[in-house]
Design a protein around this nucleic acid. Sequence first.
DNA 1: ATGAATACGAAACGGAGCGTAGCGTAAAGG
DNA 2: CCTTTACGCTACGCTCCGTTTCGTATTCAT
Lengths: 208, 208
Amino acid sequence: MATGRGRPRDTQIDAAVLQATAEALDHHGYRGVVIEDVARRAGVSKTAVYRRWPNRHRLTLAVLAERVGRIEAPSTGCTLCDLHECLTLITHAFRRLGAGTLAQLIAEGDDDPAVQQHLTQAVLDPPRRAVHRTLFEARRRGDLRSDVDLPLTVDALSSLVFYRLLLGADPMDPHEIEAVVIAQLRGIATDADTLLREATEHEEHHPH
Amino acid sequence: MATGRGRPRDTQIDAAVLQATAEALDHHGYRGVVIEDVARRAGVSKTAVYRRWPNRHRLTLAVLAERVGRIEAPSTGCTLCDLHECLTLITHAFRRLGAGTLAQLIAEGDDDPAVQQHLTQAVLDPPRRAVHRTLFEARRRGDLRSDVDLPLTVDALSSLVFYRLLLGADPMDPHEIEAVVIAQLRGIATDADTLLREATEHEEHHPH
DNA sequence: ATGAATACGAAACGGAGCGTAGCGTAAAGG
DNA sequence: CCTTTACGCTACGCTCCGTTTCGTATTCAT
């Protein structure tokens, strides 16, 4: 890899395989990612796939990481708005991913710590960090009590999104997200009422 | 089935297979439930297994339903205590179940609504109902605001348990459960401070 | 008693899909 | 030119699901 000895890899193959994998993922979920089919649709041999990714788990993660990894924590200064936006972003990103796919990836990591770590790093940490950052900023502004357990609150907020995706009938809708964020804020804010008022004003400046 | 024509089924086989399945589940998780192995350890033919359960998914659910289905909603009259107890029960029941197993079952139901429904009914609904009942009692006592979205609050509380089990490093510990319940109560209670005080008194009567 | 229906065990099978290996060819560098 | 690596093709071994076949056993109905 370091030295350029031998025939260089065809970078178009990487792209084609990732493309085909993404399509299979969207159409049939994780179990639709069948290496032989992916290779054929990419116009590539199975060998070429396995030369780049050690197994279909890692291949799939390579696609998902790009989709989910780009969640940015919003920062408007309005705590309620930021949290709402944050959870909305996560909901959208993971809704496209699909419940079965995520569940399958989790299951596969059950007995292999390395697999589990890759999943966590590539797919689960990014949204967590976004929520954490949002809460951190809020606390820095003095919006949150000082005794709030930040990691636990991160879990409390993001867990709902995953739960509804994995186990619920429907993913979260905007109204539900708002209700949860408000209830949560009442539990951890120094002055929840003021935050709610600020959010209402903010809404008037950025309608819909 | 209605008429007793033909040789009756050996009820010991049912028991032996369920037993063997439970052991496999505890030792190696869902993927350890290999029909051929289960049958052998139960001293039974594979045919006998498939005559009773249509596939390993249903066989596994038959075991889990008995374990998880017996979660009873506590009812001491102390809202905080009841919720704490409720979440603790769920955490214990599902910790034994194992993250990989649950994830695998969810994944398998992805493209088959019937499978998904069986899982929901046998494993996921019981804990949900326990939380719901606990919250319902609390609202009936007037401990909760009247505008509280009960189903959503049920999700908010139980989601955390599942999230930590499926995606987190460790399941919830008692201290974390308490912190979450308190924060949540501040968001939905009519008078959170009084509830907390009651819980403290209750604790003195039922120490440890 | 005899026959139909059902259960049981043993064994073999078909199928899906993962990941690997062997072989011949192609492209790069020393 | 020789070594190294990439590529495609094909075949293979492996695991495990769920099915089928066949001979035997057990029960009820007539």
